[in-house]
Amino acid sequence: MTPSSTNRSGWAAYLQVAPLTLVLICFFAVPVALVVIVSFFRYQMLVGIVPTFTVKNYVDLFTNPTTWTLYASTLKFTLIVLVVTFVLGFWIAYFLVFHIRNLVTAIGLFLVCTVPFWTSNIIRMISWRPVLGREGLINSALQNAGITSQPIDWLLYSDFSVVVAYVHLFTLFMIVPIFNSMARIDKALLEAAIDAGASRFGVIWEVVLPLSKTGIALGALFVVTLVMGDFFVVTVMSGGLSGSATSGIFNDLQFLNYPRAAANAVILLITVLLIAAGIFRLVDVRKELVR
C-alpha cells in the first residue's frame, strides 16, 4: 500500500471499481435476475409473457425426458472434454515450462499455442469439414494408403467430431492458466525434491501438480462453462444429431416461449454455478489470484 494512498484508499478504491461494477450490474446482475423472474411467468400463445406466478415451466422441463437426455449428453461431453484438455494442457504446459531451457523459445512456443485463439471459433470449427468429411483429407489418405476401402462415416457429424472440435477450441483455456501457475514454481524446489530422493514422476506428482492446482482449477472452470454453455459446436459438428442443454433453450426461443427458455436457462445456470462452486471449494482461486 502506498503511503499517500492509505488515507484515501477508502473512496479511491470505490471510484476505481465503480465503472466495472456499473457494467456488471447493468449487463450481468439485472439480466440474470430478470431471467430468473421471467422463468416463473406464464407463456401464452400469441400474447407472449404473462406476468403471473407459476412453476409450470419448471414442472414441464423436469417431467420431460428430453431435458434429462440433453443434460446427460452435455455432461458426457463435458467430462470427456475436461479429461482430454486437462491431460493435453498439463503436459504441454509442463513441456514448455520445465523442458524448454531458453525462456524466449518457451514464450515463442507458448504464443504458437495461443495464436488460433485470436481467430474466429466458428471458422475453426468449420475447418474440420474438409479434414474429417467423407471426401476429406483423412478419409482420402486412408483410402489411398489402402487401409480402408470405404470412407469412414463416423469421423464427421458424430460425437467424435464434436469432441475433436471442443478439444481444438478449448485446450488453450487449460494451457494458459496451467502455464501461468507452473511458471511461478521455483525451479529450486524441483531440485530439492530430486536431491531428497524423489523420482521424476514423484516430483511431478508431489510438487508440480499441487503447485499448479490454481491453474488447473481455472482451466477446468473455463472448459466446463464453455462446453456446458455451448450450443453451436454441438449442433454443427454433430450434424444436428446430438443436442446440448442449450438446445432446449434454443428451441423455446424459436417459438418465442421466453418463460420456458428462461426456466431452462436458470437450470443450466444453477448446474454451472454448482460445478464452479465445487471447483472453488477445492481451490481458493481468489487467494491465489490476488496476491
Binding site: L20, P31, T225, V272, L273, A276
Partner: peptide, 21 residues
C-alpha cells in the same frame, strides 16, 4: 465473485437476459 460469475454464466443465458431487460 460477480465478475467471475459474469465470466462463467453461459453466453446464451446472458443473451436472453439482456434482450428481456
Amino acid at each position: 465473485y460477480m465478475a467471475i460469475a459474469s465470466l462463467i454464466v453461459p453466453g446464451l443465458v446472458l443473451s436472453i437476459g439482456t434482450l428481456v431487460t
